[in-house]
């Protein structure tokens, strides 16, 4: 995840549409995944994510007051998703649907670790249980705090701790991983 979010935030505040697009590119996939895990419907999830970004743009003059834009986007996605759920009254609680969780692929920009290793790890991540995979992804890839993930998914911090622990344990114990030489260590 990019580390210049505050800079983007400031540019968007100043009406920079290019920066806004960059912000969108940075968060769209993650937010869509969260929305889909909540509403189980791709079309609705797309609308939710669109609503989040439209609201950010329309309220960009208030952006300086947002201290953590990343968390703000996730929280907004969750809240708007809950609103959709209330409106359509299909589901009252969150349930993670396996069919909408993404597969993982290699990020071609980062080749620090051998391709073989990356392939194995991604395969292993793909085999984690859906909830475990989503929580692991939110913590590791999206860099959310444990308490933030707990709030987003309406689960306890203990559950987040356990699921990340389970994911790590399973991944390190994947068959084959230990036999591949590590090249990404510093």
């Amino acid at each position: 995840m990019r580390d210049d979010i505050p800079e983007l935030q400031n540019k968007v505040y100043n009406g920079d549409t290019q920066a806004f697009k960059e912000l969108y590119d940075c968060f769209c996939a993650s937010l869509l995944q969260l929305a889909m895990a909540m509403v189980h419907n791709r079309e609705m999830a797309e609308e939710i994510v669109a609503d989040v970004f439209i609201a950010v743009w329309n309220k960009r003059k208030s952006l300086p007051q947002v201290t953590n834009l990343k968390w703000y986007l996730y929280a907004a996605t969750r809240n708007i998703a809950l609103n959709y759920l209330r409106k359509y009254a299909h589901k009252k609680t969150l349930q993670l649907d396996e069919s909408y969780l993404p597969d993982y692929e290699i990020n071609p920009e980062a080749q620090l670790i051998s391709n073989e290793m990356v392939r194995h790890i991604n395969k292993a991540i793909g085999e984690l249980p859906p909830q475990c995979r989503l929580i692991f992804k939110l913590v590791k890839e999206d860099g959310l705090k444990y308490r933030e993930v707990a709030v987003l998914l309406n689960i306890s911090i203990k559950t987040v701790e356990n699921q990340v622990g389970i994911a790590l344990k399973k991944l390190t114990q994947m068959k084959g991983i230990l036999t591949i030489p590590l090249t990404g260590n510093h």
Binding site: A29, L32, P102, I106, L171
Partner: peptide, 17 residues
């Protein structure tokens, strides 16, 4: 150490693209 390497391995989802 292995867990550390796994943590640093970048992953990207296909679904939303």
């Amino acid at each position: 150490e292995l867990a550390g390497s796994i943590w640093q391995t970048p992953v990207q989802e296909v679904a939303a693209t």
